[in-house]
Simulated scan of single mutants.
Amino acid sequence: MKRFKLLFLLLALSIQSCITQTNKINGVSFVASGEAINDNHVKPVINLNANYAAIMPFGYIKELSNPDIVFNTDRQWFGESKKGAKQYIATLKAKHIKIMLKPQIWVWRGEFTGNIEMDSEADWKTLEASYSKFILEYTELAQEMKVDILCIGTELEKFIDNRPDYWFSLIEKIKSKYKGKLTYAANWDEFKRTPFWSKLDYIGVDAYFPVSNSKTPTVSECLEGWKAHKPVVFEISKKHDKPILFTEFGYRSVDYSGKEPWKSDRSMNQVNLEAQTNTTQALFETFWKEDWFAGGFIWKWFHNYEKSGGENNSRFTPQNKPVETLIRKQYSLK
């Protein structure tokens, strides 16, 4: 009898392990473009073994202290609009790719959204009304299209710090309109302080943690670097009893890719494909086996695959680079 119970326990653990692995979110951050997409644009996503895509329409702010969000205008690219997001979602879903809808704010000249902060109570009220209009419109789209996950914001630390009551109220309004899973994309140095994780389904992290100061970081160096961050990530997951989702992750194919992974400075242009591959491998080895880790979305994936990335490209995209093979292999694991 004891032997039978032991065998049953081992079988149960084995099944649970399989469930954990096959349920991982193996996603791409699907970049909005100026045109509609079709099956030819989706095929490379399928070939990557991805099972999710983040669709990212945009709203625009003129400057960090401006409270007005402009969105769904004729001046935006097709994929940045509600109409475009809907077409992208429908085309990807038709090929059995699940969706995270991730509406984002872009500040003029690319200033960091975490620093959006108003100068007066009146402006805060205007920003709240403007953001509510923006996110609730996409909440309705998420419900209409039955997307699997809605991300309610991306890297808005000062907005949240200054107006926490607004965010708790907003989440309740979102839940009244949308019945899927919710997350928020906190920056890597923000997520520890985000106050409303208990109200969401995933703890979302844009995972640009520094892991190595080397020009060409080795896998072992990066694994060592993760030892400073992984316990903190796990502790937040345990504290709120919520899985961690890397709403963005990835590295540039450039020298010192693990030092300040959030940087997109175009003056950093020395291509280093090995650095991108090693940092990505270490991230996979650190997190993908953990049952408290839900998965993530590689940053970033362009619709015109043949023209994207390549071995002379120093940007984030893994397309047509050695790291793409690594991702394909990881995403294939069962």
Rank of each mutant, 00 (worst) to 15 (best):
K2Y: 04
K2R: 05
K2L: 07
F4W: 02
F8T: 12
L9C: 11
L11F: 15
S29E: 02
A32K: 05
N38C: 05
V42Q: 04
K43Y: 11
P44K: 03
N66F: 03
N66G: 02
D68Q: 06
V70R: 11
V70K: 12
V70G: 07
R75S: 15
E80P: 08
S81V: 10
K82P: 10
A85D: 15
K86P: 13
Q87T: 11
K93W: 08
L101D: 15
I105H: 04
I105W: 03
R109E: 02
G110W: 02
F112A: 12
N115E: 05
A122R: 06
W124R: 13
L127E: 02
S132R: 06
F134R: 11
I135Q: 05
L150M: 13
I152M: 08
R163A: 04
S169A: 14
K173R: 10
I174G: 07
K175E: 12
G204P: 10
V205E: 05
Y208V: 07
Y208H: 09
N213S: 14
V219K: 15
E221R: 09
C222V: 12
C222G: 06
H229V: 06
E235N: 13
S237Q: 02
D241P: 04
I244D: 01
Y256S: 10
T279K: 03
T279V: 12
Q281F: 07
E285L: 07
W288M: 09
E290H: 08
W292R: 03
G295M: 06
F302H: 12
Y305P: 08
E306M: 00
G310M: 02
P322Y: 08
T325N: 13
K329Y: 14
K329S: 13
K334L: 13
